[in-house]
């Protein structure tokens, strides 16, 4: 929670931000750090897309239970993104296929894109931030 409510720089400029997530959730800190940056960015009213490719698609799996490794289960936090008006979640079809995953395996609603569609989406961004 931030008391810096609806903070922006006053310029009213809206840029297209893509957060590109390519790492599995717990083996490195990238997934959690990326998610926190996205939640903070939401206060700036920018056009945010979250993209999950390669091992990043593993972040969105249902049925995660982290009690045994004693870390926070932040997979639940992806379901809070809607309340932060972050509604553009994309996953890469080829990454899903290579891991035997389908949309039904994921904890949130996503748009599945082909590699070409993903490439176009990336090309039209003002800023791409990679985790």
């Amino acid at each position: 929670m931030s008391d810096m409510d609806d903070m922006d720089d006053g310029s009213g400029i809206v840029k297209k931000f893509m957060f590109l997530n390519r790492k599995a959730p717990h083996g490195t800190v990238y997934a959690l750090e990326g998610l926190e940056v996205v939640l903070i960015t939401a206060a700036f009213d920018q056009d945010v897309s979250m993209v999950f490719t390669d091992d990043g698609v593993y972040q969105l799996l249902k049925g995660i239970d982290t009690k045994g490794i004693e870390v926070k289960d932040f997979s639940k936090t992806y379901r809070a993104l809607d309340g932060y008006d972050i509604e553009k979640l994309y996953v890469d079809q080829a990454s899903m296929d290579a891991r035997g995953l389908t949309e039904d395996d994921l904890i949130v609603d996503v748009t599945v894109l082909s590699v070409d569609e993903m490439a176009n989406l990336m090309a039209e961004q003002d800023v791409v931030i990679s985790f």
Partner: peptide, 12 residues
């Protein structure tokens, strides 16, 4: 096992 469970993979 705990690493499988933490990744939602216990049943797969």
């Amino acid at each position: 096992g705990p690493d499988l469970a933490a990744r939602g993979m216990a049943a797969r």
